[in-house]
Write a protein that binds this DNA or RNA. Structure first.
Length: 211
DNA sequence: CGTGCGATTATCT
DNA sequence: GATAATCGCACGC
């Protein structure tokens, strides 16, 4: 048996929940992914957060109770998934950045290879937020979903195996967050498991020159 | 191997 | 109208 993570797990400070999620498993649509990389976003106190400038139609779910999904469309082509944490109104959330597919590899591979010419290696199946969301088939329809419900389609579980984390927990600057003002070091809120192939490569925020 | 660039559109100013 | 919590591929070493 595996234990579904309850609301109390998510209703803690985001900097506590984020590292605690490493090694936990997310399940949806026949695919299960063991998380190896996440990032914390601290709502109105965090210039890198989508909630920094207050509620909007897009980010409103983050201002609600913990344990719901904040899905957003990124760069005009990818979906990314967060789970809301902390107390209601704090607008804190954890971005799911990478993981290892532990069940449903064939389904995940099929989803990931759709519209591609090159095959996808096992390590790349859920490497990066866009890829993880694609492998789990998470998007607009899952916006606001309650992952703590008894009959939740998307659930977080603690694997029965005692070697939950696997590698050692590591912490460092977030990836590609322009709100950090070029100093991602100010918010070292990316958490990952050492020596896990599914952890995405670090890339600084890309500057986009206007033409 | 590492680096650079174009794709593509919802969202907010 | 500009931007963006990205990705995959091309290209050069």
């Amino acid at each position: 048996m595996t234990e579904q993570l309850d609301r109390a797990f998510f209703a803690r400070p985001v900097l506590e929940v984020a590292p605690a999620l490493l090694g936990m498993v997310v399940e949806h649509g026949g695919v299960a992914i063991r998380l190896t990389e996440v990032e914390a976003y601290a709502g109105s106190e965090d210039p890198g957060s989508h909630a920094f400038r207050g509620p909007t139609p897009r980010n409103q779910v983050m201002f609600g109770p913990a344990g719901h999904l904040y899905c957003y469309f990124s760069y005009g082509m990818h979906w990314a998934t967060n789970v809301v944490t902390g107390h209601e109104g704090s607008a804190c959330a954890v971005l799911l950045r990478g993981g290892e597919v532990v069940r449903g590899v064939e389904v995940a591979r099929e989803r990931r290879e759709r519209g591609r010419r090159r095959p996808v290696t096992a390590r790349d199946l859920a490497r990066g937020p866009g890829n993880l969301a694609r492998a789990l088939e998470l998007g607009q329809e899952q916006y606001g979903a309650d992952v703590c419900a008894v009959d939740a389609a998307i659930r977080f579980v603690r694997p029965q195996s005692h070697k939950i984390p696997g590698g050692r927990r590591r912490q460092g600057p977030r990836v590609g967050v322009s709100g950090d003002g070029g100093s991602a070091e100010a918010f070292p809120w990316r958490f990952w498991l050492e020596d896990e192939p599914s952890v995405s490569a670090y890339r600084p925020a890309t500057r986009r020159l206007s033409r």
